[in-house]
Structures are given as C-alpha cells and as structure tokens.
Amino acid sequence: MSDDGLIVPEDEYGRIRVFALDMPPERADFLREPGAADQVLGLAGLDPTQIDVIRVADLEELGLTGYLTEGCGLSKEQIAPDRAMLEALDGYVLVLRSRAFKGAAAVLAPEPDVRLIATYDEPSPDWRAQPLRSDSAAPYSAPRLSPRAARAQARRIGGSLFAAVIVVIALVLWWGVF
C-alpha cells in the first residue's frame, strides 16, 4: 500500500484505491447513487462510472482478490502481500480508479467510516513494437496510374454515378405516374 494514498497528483493514471466501508448496508448501498461517494470521500466532481461499491459477499467464490486480479487486471504478485487482509474483509468496499479524478489533482478527506485499505497500480500496456520492414509499408509505394488512366477511371466513375441518378429519377417519375 502506498503512503500517499490520499493525495492524488495531477494527471494520475492507472491507480486503484480500495476502501473498506464500515457503515450500515443501507448507507453503503446509497453510495452507488451519483454524487454520494463524493460526500464520503470529501471531494466533489468525481466520475461515478469509475467508482464501484461492492458487497463482498456478492463476489461469492471469486472474492475481492479475484475481482481485483480478474476484473481490474491487477497482477497476483501485487495483491499477494495484502491477500489475507483482503480476504478477511466483509461488508462493503469501495474501489476508486484514477480516472474518477478526471486528471485533476485532489486530496481525499474520507469520513471516519471509510478506511483506505490499499492502493495498487494497474499494469500499463506494452507499446513496444518492431518497426515495419516491408516494401508496401514505405511511403508512396503503391503503383501510380498514368494521367490518361486516371482520367479514364474518373470518367467511368462519374458516368456510373450519373447513370444511377438518372435511373433513380426515372423510377421516381414512373412511380408518381402509377
């Protein structure tokens, strides 16, 4: 778990914070409403689509660790040190993704019944790739038409479009007569 779990730097990307909710089930269920989680976290303007309020019992055999690894894509190695603590949680948890802050810096001031349990980093995609080495990948590698062939092709396309429009007009007029 990170020590700076309650300070969110500007443009933070790829972090997941897990909070335990020590509150009655009715109040925890209410946190699923837009803006309700903002109140208990002490910060307005969070994106509600990036906040999950989960009843741990609803996860059944998947469990909270399975939700974090399989549902959120976190690595099992990253969860391993906190596995026993996560499996011991019951009641409700709140999972908060960095995208909820919309790139703005923030300082969370959660209510006493909202405890930060852990902060994890989502795996980043591997953008490395081998450069393309193909003649067809080179710029301007497509065969060029001669000017005469390009004009002939343009005339064929234009003539086809003109014929299609004339047929449509004729059908509309014929349909109007009958």
Rank of each mutant, 00 (worst) to 15 (best):
R151S: 12
S124Y: 03
A80S: 11
A164L: 12
V107E: 15
D58F: 01
R128W: 08
G73I: 15
E122R: 10
L64C: 07
L64R: 02
A118I: 01
P147W: 06
C72Y: 04
V93E: 01
L68Y: 13
G103R: 08
E122C: 11
A154P: 07
R99L: 01
V168I: 13
F162C: 10
S75I: 03
L161C: 09
G91L: 04
A84C: 02
D82R: 02
G103D: 10
W127G: 07
G159A: 11
V95L: 00
A84Q: 07
D82S: 09
R128V: 09
L59H: 08
V95P: 02
D113Q: 15
A118Q: 06
G63M: 10
I79N: 05
S141R: 06
R155P: 07
A137P: 03
D121Y: 03
A118H: 08
E77F: 10
V167S: 11
S136A: 14
I157R: 15
P112Q: 08
A105L: 02
R97N: 00
G103H: 11
A84V: 13
R155G: 06
E87W: 00
A80W: 01
S160A: 08
P147V: 09
A88H: 07
E77P: 02
P81C: 08
A109S: 10
A84S: 07
A142H: 11
A106Q: 01
A163G: 09
D58I: 06
L161E: 03
E122W: 04
A100L: 04
G71K: 00
I169A: 14
A150T: 14
S141L: 08
L132V: 00
Q78S: 13
S146D: 06
